[in-house]
Write a protein that binds this DNA or RNA. Structure first.
Length: 881
RNA sequence: GGGAGGUUAGCUCAGCUGGUUCAGAGCACCUGCCUUACAAGCAGGGGGUCACUGGUUCGAAUCCAGUACUUCCCA
């Protein structure tokens, strides 16, 4: 025994077993006759390094996959990364800048060469880090959204949607990131309240000396004004209907239009309309056929069309132009104001609404089946309440802008020739098409120009559950693995990803992409702040694994993360995980230190103990399986945790532990090992490394096989009478220990215990090994049943049974009396409540018979306790007086 | 502005279809222990009018309404 360290050392164990599993190809999956269980990883950014969110998310997936594997299913977990257009391009640009290279000086191809180099060098880091966590992915299947198979799928889908009229190109208002100089989807814009100022500016009414005053937070857009709008019912402005206003300092005369869109009590009730720079204004512009004047360049500086300060930044111009207006007497007043400002998720630049020509997917045409599937629980959400969010978004769905003004990504498969557009999977097809349409057979590829933009990264991610199985080329694997079993992801990308995958699934396979969706919470710090790089509040994931072991970290992540609920990360959690590993480790050391002796028969106590363990294990396993059904992983883990720590270590091992230097019966030894290995099987999905290690340490000389592939315990109801008896014994033993603690008695001092005779007590006493068990665990000198009503010493009630510990000590009668009286009151209330129930006809008539039976039992027990307590109180009163 | 959720021990949360041996878990806390598997431990213990108000009911942490506070989503 001495050669085994008293502390569990995870590092070498983890390294050893991970490479062993890999060498055995245990993670590998190919279609066969077994039931499949498939999971696709939410592909992390190729730029990413492992953070807490990944650890939580991937631990959960690994738990599910490992359990499925132990259940004999063909478990397939497909790993991969996505190319993260904006983030990666930004990273590569920065890297180039550090090397003194400007993106603007490079051709597209040159830039992409650098980008791929970067990807090859750094792109796989996160996947290697997942291995440290124990992730049992089928690494041979590692996919990347820009590899050949996944890219082909993207182009196919684009062409297909276009052909069927569900994808189009149009000039619309978009969210423009002037720093990245690209469009953003709605989901990539983060809104927040910011301090700004509301400028009240007066516009002269054409041909009069009258003015109309508008309020705006953005005076720099005034050069783009092409109307002033008022509410039709606003009496202040009736006189101006049909007239024109002069845009101050610009001199443009613009119509005063009337529209119910205007909010009368906001600002002055008059609204300047700038169709090129505001979504709502754009709609007004379309409705009233207004001119659009785009006053900005794509980097947020003023354009030549603005006529003022060309080339200056919009925020600089805001100040300058406001000052000009003021100097010219057009500013009526300036108020401090808070408004909602959208910023780019990636660059934090203030998003500029901008008119631009982009590609869109007609989402209404795709949403139907995906919405229905979730509504009907055909796709089941865990937790359920995410359905509301999903429904709301799907019912108000807007078209998806999929083009991005970047180079890193899938280039839009559209080619232009003159005024023609050809959408095709490749240039050769586009050329064929071009020849046909134009009638010019002499066209060459050089005559066509491909769209400069790339597609939104999610336009490849939404195909992921299909494309990782090469499903757009071949049905072979798709038929087996698809729909996947479960998707595990954060609720924050329910729209970006989950909804879109559901749509793509129905669109191209006619089926849902997954049966279940498990939404994890966000990992936050103790102050509930989201973990982020900026705040620096995220622990180093790999450091955590080094310090606490992968199993410890997995335990920490899981033990406190109910589905959908946020995980408030605290290093205490992983510490608990590490301590748990140590506990398991030491239980193993204890057992391995025993000397089994074939010539000794197991005692009745031994037999009772291991039979009880079997029953209890069975009950726990059943509960764990039920918890898995509902994805209550943290409940499942905590059940196993307390089963191991309390039942197995604190109770069972102490029950069967032989005395110092004494041997243990071989039967009991073998049985203990078998229980422990079952425990390893049960715990393995959560803590794979230590369970594998212990499994092998315990099995060195006997059975073969690995914990990872051992059958997962199914569990059952268990022997209720035996379970109840042991629970009673445990409570009794605890009560005796309490007597010790209260009276300052040493644990070595053996005590005589008497039980007041009763049916229950005799029944328990008849169970083989019961009395020896209590005697051993409570450190008794003797344990007898008596008919005496009182014995000198301390007495107490367990369930409805009365026990006496014979003691020659003074007891504090007054204090004891107070306690017993308090308890009596509680019991009286308890019984009173049940009596009320049982005397109520409607209850007796209506409640199910087993409920009534239970109430009767509770009543009888309660009454018995009252009887015993009353006796006691009378006796104590006598002593006090 | 529209919508969804939350409010249970000091902290983080369980508590499913209403029924007091269920007010529970983990952590934290207090007391006593270096009892040779484990001090990363052992034994014992104290903590809660289940946000507030009203209603339904024989009975409410659990259902309903309102109030307060709070989180989130969408605009």
């Amino acid at each position: 025994m001495s050669e085994i360290s008293a502390r569990y050392n995870p590092l070498e164990v983890e390294e050893k077993w991970y490479s062993y599993w890999m060498s055995m190809q245990y993670f590998k999956s190919t279609p066969d006759g077994r039931e499949p269980y498939s999971v696709v990883i939410p592909p992390p950014n190729v730029t990413g390094v492992l953070h807490m969110g990944h650890m939580l998310n991937n631990t959960i997936q690994d738990v599910l996959i490992r359990k499925a594997r132990q259940e004999g299913k063909n478990a397939c977990w497909v790993p991969g990364t996505d190319h993260a257009s904006i983030a990666t391009e930004a990273k590569v640009v920065r890297m180039l800048r550090e090397r003194g290279i400007k993106k603007a000086d490079l051709s597209r191809d040159e830039f992409l060469k650098y980008a791929w180099e970067w990807k090859e060098e750094y792109g796989g880091i996160i996947l290697q880090q997942l291995q440290k966590l124990g992730a049992s992915c089928d690494w041979d299947r590692t996919a990347f959204t820009m590899d050949e198979i996944r890219s082909d799928a993207v182009y196919k889908v684009f062409v297909d949607l276009h052909r069927r009229g569900k994808l189009y190109r149009k000039k619309r208002m978009v969210n423009w990131d002037p720093e990245a100089r690209t469009v953003l989807s709605n989901e990539e814009v983060i809104y927040g309240m910011e301090n700004s100022r509301l400028f009240h500016v007066k516009y002269q009414i054409e041909g009069t000396e009258e003015y109309i005053t508008i309020a705006t937070t953005r005076p720099e857009t005034i050069p783009g004004d092409t109307a002033v709008a008022v509410h039709p019912d606003d009496p202040r402005y009736h006189a101006f209907h049909g007239k024109r206003a002069i845009v101050p300092l610009i001199g443009r005369a613009v119509p005063i239009i009337v529209d119910e869109y205007v909010t009368m009590d906001f600002g002055t009730g008059a609204l300047k309309v700038t169709p090129a720079h505001d979504v709502n204004d754009f709609d007004l512009g379309v409705k009233h056929q207004l001119e659009t004047v785009d006053v900005f360049n794509d980097d947020g500086t003023m354009s030549s069309a603005a006529g003022i300060y060309p080339g200056d930044d919009r925020f600089v111009v805001r100040k300058k132009f406001a000052a000009d207006l003021d100097a010219a007497g057009y500013i009526v007043k300036i108020e401090d104001y808070k408004n909602n400002v959208g910023r780019s998720e990636r660059t934090n630049a203030v998003v500029e609404p901008r008119l631009s020509l982009q590609w869109y997917v007609d989402m209404k045409a795709l949403a139907g089946p995906a919405l229905d599937a979730v509504e009907s629980d055909e796709i089941e959400f865990f937790p359920k309440n995410q359905k509301n969010l999903y429904r709301h978004w799907m019912e108000n769905i807007r078209d998806w802008c999929i083009s991005r003004q970047l180079w890193w990504g899938h280039r839009v498969p559209a080619w232009y020739y003159g005024e023609f557009t050809f959408v095709a999977e490749n240039i050769a097809e586009a050329l064929e098409e071009a020849k046909k349409i134009s009638g010019n057979l002499a066209l060459t590829e050089a005559d066509l120009s491909q769209d400069e933009d790339v597609l939104d990264t999610w336009f490849s991610s939404w195909l992921w559950p299909i494309s990782v199985f090469d499903g757009f080329n071949s049905k072979e694997e798709l038929n087996y693995y698809y729909p996947t079993s479960v998707l595990v992801t954060g609720w924050d990308i329910i729209f970006l990803w989950v909804a879109r995958m559901a749509m793509a699934g129905f669109e191209w396979t006619g089926e849902k992409p997954f049966h279940d969706v498990y939404f994890t919470g966000m990992v936050r710090d103790k102050q509930r702040r989201k973990m982020s790089k900026q705040l620096g509040n995220s622990p180093d994931a790999l450091k955590l694994i080094e310090d606490y072991g992968a199993d410890g970290v997995r335990f920490g992540m899981l033990s406190c993360s109910p589905a959908g609920g946020d995980l408030l990360f605290d290093e205490k959690l992983v510490e608990q995980g590490r301590n748990f590993c140590n506990k398991l480790w030491n239980a193993m050391r204890l057992i391995l230190g025993w000397t089994p002796d074939p010539s000794i028969e197991p005692t009745p106590l031994d037999q009772l103990a291991y039979n009880w363990m079997d029953e209890k294990l069975s009950v726990i396993a059943l509960k764990v399986n039920e918890d898995f059904q509902q994805y209550r992983l943290s409940d499942a883990l905590m059940s196993i945790y307390s089963f191991i720590w309390d039942d197995f270590c604190s109770w069972y091992l102490e029950m069967v532990k032989p005395g110092q230097g004494e041997p243990i019966s071989e039967q009991c030894y073998t049985k203990t090992i078998s229980i422990f290995t079952d425990i390893c099987s049960l715990l393995h999905p959560f803590m794979p490394f230590i369970t594998e290690e212990i499994w092998h340490q315990l099995k060195t000389n006997s059975q073969k096989g690995d914990c990872m592939l051992s059958p997962y315990p199914k569990g059952g109801k268990g022997d209720e009478i035996m379970l109840a008896a042991i629970e009673h014994a445990k409570t009794l033993i605890t009560a005796i220990r309490e007597v010790r603690a209260k009276n300052g008695l040493k644990s070595k001092e053996a005590l005589p215990l008497y039980a007041k005779s009763s049916q229950i007590v005799s029944a328990f006493e008849k169970i083989g090994g019961y009395s020896p068990l209590v005697t051993k665990m409570a450190g008794l000198f003797s344990f007898e049943i008596t008919d005496l009503e009182d014995i000198q010493g301390v007495n107490f009630i367990v369930d409805a049974e009365k026990y006496f510990v014979e003691l020659q000590i003074e007891i504090d009668a007054a204090k004891e009396l107070e306690e017993k009286q308090k308890e009596l009151v509680h019991q009286l209330n308890f019984v009173d409540g049940i009596l009320k129930k049982l005397t109520n006809e409607r209850f007796v008539a209506g409640a199910p018979s087993d409920v009534i039976e239970k109430e009767r039992k509770k009543l009888a027990d309660g009454q018995e306790r009252i009887r015993l307590l009353e006796q006691e109180v009378i006796k104590l009163k006598g002593l006090v007086n």
